[in-house]
Structure formats: structure tokens, C-alpha cells
């Protein structure tokens, strides 16, 4: 059923200086699968590793461990396999000002994928490019196609970027914060476009820090903290009844426009340091619920409610460990 599956994906980067060598665990043992016609949101703050996951799936990085399965198979390293993968899995970047080549026209950006993957003959390219532009709501397509990126507004550029991703008729699209750099009034347009494209059977991974937009477009959600998925499940269920204290904190922090600024509960502590992480829960220093075991053992992702899993010793204890957790006094 799943079109793309990620298993035990990890990515480490070198960090620190010459004397103190450290490893940044940007992504640590992340697993999930994407299904056709569904949007999965990947939420978290900056530095949580969500963009690294997006780039790992787009094969811009090689994973340190784990694998990406496409259609049930590991993708080979040969150029032909890589090309085939790229014709099925596409990435939309955050910054529409940076992701288009300033020296090239819109037409170039859309025509190249068609030519590379042999999806249109030289004669059909023009028509196909215009068709793509119409799909993403850029009219009149013939005029837009000959423009340079700097002649377009931010929202128009992001639509071009989406059209480029769609050119190869992908089965998976990873959108890395596609609206965060756009003006408020045009964000909804891009989100609606994603909702419409989902109907074509594309599997979306929507990477975002904005829970409200995740709720608006997505079916499922993964919440990442310091490189790990700390909670996952259907988006409505997770946002209505979050299990992990970090998810709760995120939800409480969103300004909902209803006044008052209800104070959020948290302990002061350093945020998300995934450099040479010690064993134990990574959220422990900021967690209002932390107990003794949280500093000793990394919690596993446990399905505490049907379809909803979290990494928390307190709210989602592993069945086998229940007794010894209750035996520990609160820290």
C-alpha cells in the first residue's frame, strides 16, 4: 500500500572542532511510510532534523544508517536507478527565491525534467510546459513561461517550483516548508494547491513547523524533536489529544487568535541538542513530566492509542516496562 517507506533512517554530521570531535545526530532512527493520495506532515522546530529527512528522501544526502524503500525495493546506486527514482520522487524547496536559477527562464525549469527523463519529445515540450503552468494556476502560461524568476512574485515562484516537481509526474512529493517564506495572504493558495494535487494520488510529505497548516492539509502527522520522531498518528487525533509533552508544548505555543496568551508550562532548559546525545529522553530537560527513568533510557515509540504512537516513558510507557517505571519515584 505504501509507495515510499523509510526504515531506521539515521544521518550524522561531524561537528565540533579539531580537539573535540563530536557527532550531530541530525536524524536518528526515523521510520514511516507514505501512501498515495495522502499528505503526511513532518513537524518540528528548526534543528529537529525534519529538513534533513526531506533531503535524505530526495537523495541529496546519503544516510548514515537505514534505508529508503521505493515501491518495496531499495534504490540502487547506479545512475540509471537513481534517474528512475528521481522521476518518481520530487522535492519542493523552502525558499522560492533560491530554488530557481536566476539565469534561466521558467520554461527552462519545467522543460529540463521533461527532457532528462524523456517524458516529452522536443515538439511536445512547449505544450506540456504550458499545461503544467496551468495546473498550478499560472496564467497565461505562454507569457509566464518566458519570464525570469526575478520577474515573478514569491507565490508565483513557488508555483513554478511545484510545477517543476510535477513535471515528471511523480508518485511522491516532499515539500520542505513550501509556505514559510511566502506572504500570509498567498499561503492558503499553495496549501489548497497541495490539497488538490493529493487527489491525483500523489503521496505528499509536508515538512513544516506550523501545526495549523499541517492540520489544514495533512492526514497524518509525525512530530520530530532533536532528530527523533516523538509522536505520530492521524493529524486530528494527535492535535486533539497529544501524548508527548513536546507535542503539547508545540500546540500550546501556537497563537490561535483568541486572546489572552495563556501561559505555557515548561522548565527552562537547553533546546534540542542532538550533538553526542546522552542516553535517555532528549526532551527531559524541558519536560514538566520527567521522571527518573527519563534520564536513563531512551523511550521507544510505543503505540499507546490505536494509530497514535509516542516516545514517552510517562504518557506512552512500553508494556513490558510498566512496572519498573511505576516503581521509580518522580525526579
Amino acid at each position: 500500500m505504501s509507495v515510499l517507506e523509510v526504515r531506521g533512517l539515521s544521518k550524522e554530521f561531524g561537528a565540533g572542532g579539531v580537539l573535540h570531535r563530536a557527532r550531530l545526530h541530525a536524524v536518528d532512527d526515523v521510520s514511516f511510510s507514505l501512501r498515495p493520495g495522502r499528505i503526511t506532515a513532518l513537524a518540528g522546530e528548526s534543528g529537529s532534523g525534519k529538513s534533513t529527512v526531506a533531503r535524505l528522501i530526495a537523495r541529496l544526502y546519503d544516510p548514515t544508517a537505514g534505508k529508503v524503500l521505493f515501491g518495496g525495493h531499495v534504490v540502487g546506486r547506479r545512475r540509471r536507478d537513481a534517474l528512475r527514482y528521481r522521476s518518481q520522487v520530487q522535492l519542493i524547496f523552502q525558499d522560492p527565491f533560491g530554488s530557481l536559477n536566476p539565469a534561466k527562464t521558467v520554461r527552462h525549469h519545467l522543460a529540463r525534467p521533461l527532457r532528462i527523463h524523456g517524458l516529452a519529445s522536443r515538439r511536445d515540450v512547449r505544450a506540456r510546459v504550458e499545461e503544467l503552468l496551468e495546473t498550478v494556476g499560472l496564467v497565461p502560461p505562454a507569457a509566464i513561461a518566458d519570464k525570469y524568476p526575478h520577474e515573478l512574485s514569491g507565490g508565483q515562484r513557488q508555483r513554478v517550483a511545484i510545477a517543476r516537481a510535477l513535471a515528471v509526474e511523480p508518485r511522491v512529493v516532499v515539500a520542505d516548508e513550501p509556505i514559510s517564506m511566502l506572504d500570509v495572504s498567498i499561503r492558503v493558495g499553495i496549501l489548497n494547491l497541495m490539497r488538490d494535487l493529493k487527489e491525483r494520488g500523489i503521496a505528499f510529505l509536508y515538512v513544516t513547523h506550523d501545526l495549523a497548516s499541517a492540520r489544514y492539509v495533512a492526514d497524518d502527522i509525525l512530530v520530530m524533536y532533536a532528530g527523533q520522531v516523538v509522536e505520530q498518528g492521524p493529524v486530528d487525533q494527535v492535535l486533539a489529544g497529544p501524548l508527548h509533552p513536546y507535542t503539547r508544548l508545540l500546540i500550546e505555543s501556537v497563537p490561535d487568535g483568541h486572546g489572552g496568551l495563556a501561559p505555557i508550562e515548561l522548565r527552562r532548559g537547553a533546546a534540542a541538542a542532538a550533538v553526542d546525545p546522552a542516553p535517555g529522553c532528549r526532551f527531559v530537560d524541558r519536560c514538566p513530566l520527567a521522571i527518573g527513568v527519563c534520564r536513563e533510557r531512551t523511550p521507544a515509540l510505543v503505540e499507546a492509542r490505536p494509530g497514535q504512537a509516542a516516545r514517552c516513558h510517562v504518557t506512552a510507557p512500553a508494556p513490558t516496562n510498566r512496572e519498573d517505571i511505576h516503581a521509580q519515584p518522580a525526579a
Binding site: A58, L91, S99, L100, P102, R164
Partner: peptide, 9 residues
């Protein structure tokens, strides 16, 4: 945009 070209193949 260079990464995007790479993703495009």
C-alpha cells in the same frame, strides 16, 4: 537551485 537541478536528475 543547484540542488533542485540535481533532484530533477
Amino acid at each position: 537551485f543547484v540542488l533542485a537541478a540535481k533532484v530533477a536528475g
